[in-house]
Design a protein around this nucleic acid. Structure first.
Lengths: 226, 226
DNA sequence: CGACGCGTTGAGCAGACTCAATCACAGTGG
DNA sequence: CCACTGTGATTGAGTCTGCTCAACGCGTCG
């Protein structure tokens, strides 16, 4: 049911909607934004390469990363129904996202009923993913959150066909910390400690997972499933 | 953009879909559940009276309240696309929710295109609401979270036509604490302190707001807007 | 090379937690 | 009617996790 979760598993079938939606390929250099909070909302995006971070902003300047997106995941869906985007989205590395103008997507839904239920399911999956992280952040201590985060990243790389045991973190410690509601020093210490306990091997952004079950038990996930 | 937020403002127009969807009124006594995580998903619900809490569950027994719902708000949308409900939903008092069988809702969307965009917007609003709380929980100290929570409750009562200055909290300190990722003693102390500072008057579950702007500035919300 | 951003590590502090006692209140049964 | 019980709320005292402040190392880039 719950599970680690992040992004939406269900990929939109691009080919099925090409007929109705004019898809634009948008490239972004590391640090460039897809959209800023407050800018007119006109499209959602499907990540095609690289990765992005989503940043929530408060009136008084507080801000927090609410998630990271990689290939096959949607961006901007939380702004549906609004006049303007609700958050900033920034490329973590040189990346590419496909722009799907939202009015066209809505029109396509009328012609392709499965698309409608796909979109709805994707939105619901996004909610479950957020809720799952709220649970993590609300109930796990710092080190356990970091363990859960690593497992999530690993699972997402695995889904894309990359190694779940050896990967490069695309985001800085500060971004990780912001997402996990911690300070970057705490994240750093947690990683060092996981290293000391031989759960992982970590050098800067390069991570090697040595003991998946160890990490899983820290993150409060049954080692049996998955 | 962000704002306090909770539930989805947009009420589904029941009359417009009565023709396609067989709506059942379901009453629940305090403590009774609408649904349990793992039970087959078949319907979403619209709260008609009373209030409910939504509870997320982890494999290892951890659990957390992820939100509260009152009149006009939807329940169960996060389970769309799944075979089974993702969370438990429990009535906080004697309440009533209208059951909308999901397959029928989907079918109705084909006949009433506005319903489709309404539903999508409602899901997106739910995501924004969750993100807004993630930001609160991730960036505000305990007392400020409690202040933000009170303002949110007040705003929701106001929207229903009740007083925003004097209301009864329907949930226990433990439920509030769970939602705010705190311990119930901390919530209790925070409320007492807000009382000491004359921002509120609180006796058990009865709350009187004495200084809205004071609370707003604590919660990091501009006092100008709204 | 020097500057800067990022990451790591240490020492001390403080906010939130834990444990525990007490109080208020509703429900129950003698 | 009141003692008894159980749950929820409040408050206190002491502890500890994660934060703050600060120094330092590494790597990149101008």
């Amino acid at each position: 049911m719950a599970q680690p979760a992040s992004g939406n598993g269900l990929g939109i079938d691009i080919e099925a909607i090409r007929e109705y939606v004019q898809v634009q390929r948008r490239k972004h250099l590391a640090g460039q934004s897809i959209c800023h909070a407050g800018q007119p909302f006109h499209a959602i995006y499907l990540v095609h390469a690289g990765s992005y971070k989503i940043c929530e902003l408060a009136d008084d300047g507080r801000e927090q990363i609410s998630g990271f997106r990689m290939r096959g995941e949607l961006i901007g869906v939380e702004s549906i129904g609004l006049k303007a985007y609700a958050s900033d989205v920034v490329a973590l590395e040189n990346s590419e996202a496909w722009e799907l103008p939202y009015p066209a997507v809505l029109r396509a839904c009328l012609h392709v009923p499965e698309l409608q239920s796909h979109l709805t399911s994707a939105l619901a999956a996004e909610i479950r993913c957020d809720r799952s992280w709220m649970l993590m952040l609300g109930t796990l201590a710092a080190e356990r959150r970091v363990a859960a985060f690593l497992l999530d990243v690993a699972a997402r790389y695995a889904r894309l066909g990359y190694s779940a045991k050896h990967f490069i973190l695309r985001m800085s410690r500060i971004d990780m910390a912001s997402f996990l509601a911690l300070k970057h020093e705490t994240v750093s210490r947690a990683l060092s400690h996981l290293h000391d306990m031989s759960y992982i091997d970590v050098q800067r952004r390069e991570v090697r997972v040595l003991d998946v079950d160890g990490l899983r038990s820290m993150a409060g996930m049954s080692t049996a499933l998955n």
